[in-house]
Design a protein around this nucleic acid. Structure first.
Length: 639
DNA sequence: GTGGCGTGGCTTTTT
DNA sequence: GCCACGCCAC
């Protein structure tokens, strides 16, 4: 490919970044300044100019969506698909590593991935086994504790007990037990993927050396969202010879609550010599009024690296501010505006702070017959019926997966109640073996009452039979659904609900079929599919249909729309009442900045005088963020 | 062992 | 206001 074709499409700063000499490059890229373009062109440039080949390049993102996007954009820039190039999410890449080096990682070949739901169940189970009171030790808090320790790269053994801190000591003990449980059941949670990958590299010089030599060029998207373990992993992988190319925007750091550290940017500048900072400040997305509002708003934050976005775009329309009487009125106003909009529906986004706000909009959009799509909420692979069937499939591969065992041992109901399960659990705990193992032993010893024994035996035979099925994935799933008798089971709780569940199961069989068609590895295809289900929660793409897009501000990052409605701009809601201290307030403001900068041409800010929350109507004050936007940019409307 | 009723508590979310 | 979970009655 002709290099000039590549470089012609870039502005001066982008060009500087893309063609920078081989040091560590940090690109501070403002909203809409061509961040992804910069990353993908850099990779294409490295390959096209022959400075390296795809085999030596790694590109890491946070979401599957971003990874897919990057992969396809790189492919379209190059004459031929880049073979050997690794593009993926942090978790996806760590997982790939662990699957390849399962022995060095001290896992079994058929280890399974625990999603956060499974993780929570597993913690609840553990608490019961330890006899801990769930009211004192909330499972959620423990989950948070464990995950944030893993984010920091800390294991239970790295934490020091403190005589004066009973809570901490308990947490450490629970964490320790949780780790042992996971290891025994051969499962890894999301945090574990990263931590385990990091440790395996750190502790195995031959692997570290191989990957350090291989990945000479490491690219990271949304670097401001990296947590500690991700940073340490990158640092380890880069070693002394790898070259980093990271793209970030400190003003769009909105994930500190899950361990992201903006300071990693400073750490990078300290830990690596020879770094170069390049700023991309020209915005190609929004009108200048919108951009201006965003700039002024974010200037209220003190903790910034500092940049000022500018644009050559037109001045544009003023920002519309609407003050509603109630959340119904707010939704009604938004809907009216959408009805007046001449363009594509998919170019319209309704953004809000909390998921609960979506319902109101949904109702009115439905009434007015406007097609819409809500992002977030329950994803495909998280649905109950999907998790049920997947649990059977997981067990068929890995009998020691206790989470899967507990999920389906009595689903459908087969008379294995709490008493039997409690017994199995305590035996398993004492003997430090899995529930399946205990069941095998117990049946052999005739320790159970006849009825329970035959039920348990029936369950185990069922799982073994599924394991024996030697069928393509689609048929395998269809057959398993029949063998398990899931249809009748779901029909017991309502015909209509069952209909939906069965449709989803059919959809799953289809997805499995598609997966199998594209699968090109020698490893078990079922195992591959289960990993796929755990790692890609199955957000349906609906670019094809022309729908109004509804989502939280968090999930809007990285997207752009012609028209944006920023709703619920009220004190206590946005900024949220739990985030009013200085540190969190700045993050809320960044969230607002993200929201504003999603809009290309039309931005609406909405707030309501009152809102129905927690079962009662409360009076709401307009958000301070509205006040922070210059009045001359705003056009107040009342109807 | 299973189904029904009552109480609490409640951001954001990707993997 | 709603959902999830725990406890209690069959």
């Amino acid at each position: 490919m002709d290099i000039s074709k590549l470089t012609k499409q870039l502005n001066k700063e982008q060009l500087t970044a893309v063609t920078a000499s081989l040091e560590h490059i940090l690109v501070l890229a403002g909203a809409g300044s061509g961040k992804t373009r910069c990353l993908t062109y850099r990779i294409a440039w490295l390959i096209t100019t022959g400075q390296t080949n795809p085999h030596n390049i790694l590109a890491v993102t946070f979401t599957n969506k971003a990874a897919n996007e990057m992969r396809s954009r790189i492919d379209s820039l190059l004459d031929e698909p880049a073979k050997g190039l690794w593009v993926g999410t942090f978790h996806g890449i760590a997982h790939r590593f662990l699957r390849t080096h399962w022995q060095d990682a001290k896992l079994s070949q058929s280890f399974q991935i625990l999603d956060s739901n499974d993780q929570l169940r597993s913690i609840k189970r553990l608490l019961k086994a330890l006899g801990a009171d769930e009211k004192v030790y909330s499972p959620q808090k423990i989950q948070n504790f464990i995950n944030s320790q893993k984010d920091e790269g800390l294991r239970a053994k790295n934490l020091t007990a403190d005589e004066n801190d009973v809570w901490l000591n308990q947490m450490i003990e629970i964490y320790q037990n949780y780790e042992e449980n996971c290891q025994r059941s051969d499962v890894v949670d999301f945090g574990e993927l990263l931590l385990r990958c990091y440790e395996t590299l750190r502790d195995n010089p031959h692997l570290l050396e191989y990957y350090q030599q291989r990945f000479q060029f490491i690219h990271v998207d949304e670097f401001q969202d990296t947590n500690n373990i991700q940073y340490k992993w990158l640092q380890l992988l880069a070693g002394t010879t790898g070259k980093l190319f990271v793209v970030f925007d400190d003003d769009q750091s909105i994930y500190s609550w899950r361990g992201a550290k903006v300071q990693n940017i400073q750490h990078l500048q300290q830990d690596f010599t020879d770094t170069k900072l390049i700023k991309l400040e020209q915005n190609y997305r929004s009108t200048s009024k919108i951009l201006n509002a965003a700039n002024v708003l974010i200037a209220n934050n003190t903790d910034r690296l500092g940049k000022n976005l500018w644009t050559e775009h037109t001045i544009g329309e003023p920002i519309t501010l609407y003050r509603a009487y109630s959340e119904v009125d707010e939704a009604w106003f938004v809907t009216e505006q959408i009805l007046n909009w001449q363009g594509k529906k998919r170019e319209v986004a309704i953004l809000y702070r909390t998921t609960a706000q979506s319902r109101q909009f949904e109702e009115i959009l439905l009434q007015k017959n406007i097609p819409y799509r809500i992002y977030g909420g329950l994803r495909f692979y998280e649905r109950l019926e999907i998790k049920d069937i997947l649990a059977y499939l997981r067990l068929s591969l890995n009998r020691n997966d206790d989470t899967a065992f507990e999920r389906v041992v009595n689903t459908p109901k087969r008379g294995i109640g709490e008493r039997t399960v409690v017994m199995l659990r305590s035996e398993a705990r004492q003997q430090k073996i899995s529930l399946w193992q205990v069941s095998v032993n117990i049946l052999a010893n005739d320790k159970l009452k006849k009825r329970a024994a035959s039920s348990l035996h029936g369950f185990m035979t069922l799982v073994k039979n599924i394991a024996k099925l030697n069928l393509p994935l689609r048929e395998l799933i269809e057959q398993a659904v029949i063998d398990i008798n899931l249809v009748e089971h779901y029909q017991k709780s309502g015909k209509e609900e069952a209909q939906g569940r069965l449709e989803n199961l059919a959809e799953l069989a289809n997805a499995a079929h598609q997966f199998e068609q594209q699968y090109n590895s020698n490893a078990s295809v079922l195992n591959g599919f289960l990993d796929h289900a755990a790692l890609e929660s199955g957000e349906k793409q609906s670019k094809s249909s022309d729908c109004v897009q509804l989502m939280t501000l968090h999930s809007a990052k990285g997207l752009e729309f012609e028209v944006v409605f920023l709703c619920g701009l009220e004190e206590e809601l946005f900024p949220h009442k739990n985030s009013l201290d200085d540190f969190n307030l700045e993050e809320e403001r960044r969230l607002c900045y993200v929201g504003i900068t999603r809009a290309r041409r039309f931005l609406y800010l909405c707030h309501s005088n009152s809102r129905f929350r927690y079962g009662e109507r409360s009076i709401c004050k307009p958000s301070r963020f509205i006040e922070e936007i210059p009045k001359e940019l705003i056009n107040k409307v009342r109807l």
